[in-house]
Structure formats: structure tokens, C-alpha cells
């Protein structure tokens, strides 16, 4: 990996049921300051597909979606801030 993304906060929503990974990510991002980076750990496939799109729709910037192993993914998002 060329460059390591350093998150300011980490949100672990592995094992959570639909739609909590999506909702918790959006709530967390809303509370973060501009430019802060959120790392989301998620293993629910539908949320892996939808969180990036929803974050972008709300003005946040998706930096990276990384497959870890099996259904586990790591998503890095830069908050747009209040």
C-alpha cells in the first residue's frame, strides 16, 4: 500500500443488522468536524455497497473502500463538517 490513511475515529458496525451500519455511519459523520477521517468496519454486504454512495450524497468524501477478508470491509470517509 502506497499510503496509509490515518483515521481520526473508528466505527465498528460488524455484526450489526440492517440498516444500523448505514444509519450509525451517517450519524457519526454528521457529528465530526470538517476534514476528520472516519474509518468504518463493516461486514454487511448491502451496507458496504450503499454507505459510500450515501456518504457522497450527503457531501462527505469517500477516500477508500478496502476489502479485508470475507465480508469484512474497511471504509474511509472524510467528513464535510457542520
Amino acid at each position: 500500500m502506497a499510503e496509509e490513511t490515518k483515521p481520526d475515529e473508528t466505527l465498528d458496525v460488524r455484526g450489526e443488522i440492517c440498516p444500523n451500519p448505514d444509519v450509525k455511519t451517517m450519524v457519526k459523520l454528521k457529528k465530526m468536524a470538517q476534514g476528520q477521517i472516519l474509518e468504518v468496519l463493516v461486514d454487511y454486504p448491502l451496507s458496504v455497497e450503499r454507505i459510500p454512495g450515501n456518504a457522497e450524497k450527503n457531501g462527505h468524501k469517500v477516500l477508500k473502500v478496502e476489502k479485508v477478508d470475507g465480508p469484512n470491509h474497511r471504509i474511509y470517509i472524510e467528513a464535510k463538517g457542520g
Binding site: 455484526g15 450489526e16 443488522i17 465480508p71 469484512n72
Partner: peptide, 21 residues
């Protein structure tokens, strides 16, 4: 389908959520 896509894995939420579901 999940196995082929690499999405099959036994995974559980917190006990409280298990009761909820």
C-alpha cells in the same frame, strides 16, 4: 452465492440485538 462471493461467514450481533431480531 455468498460463499462464491467471499461473503459467507458466521457473524453475530450483540446478545441484545439477537433477542431483538
Amino acid at each position: 452465492a455468498a460463499k462464491i462471493a467471499g461473503e459467507a461467514k458466521l457473524r453475530a450481533p450483540a446478545p441484545k440485538v439477537l433477542i431483538q431480531t
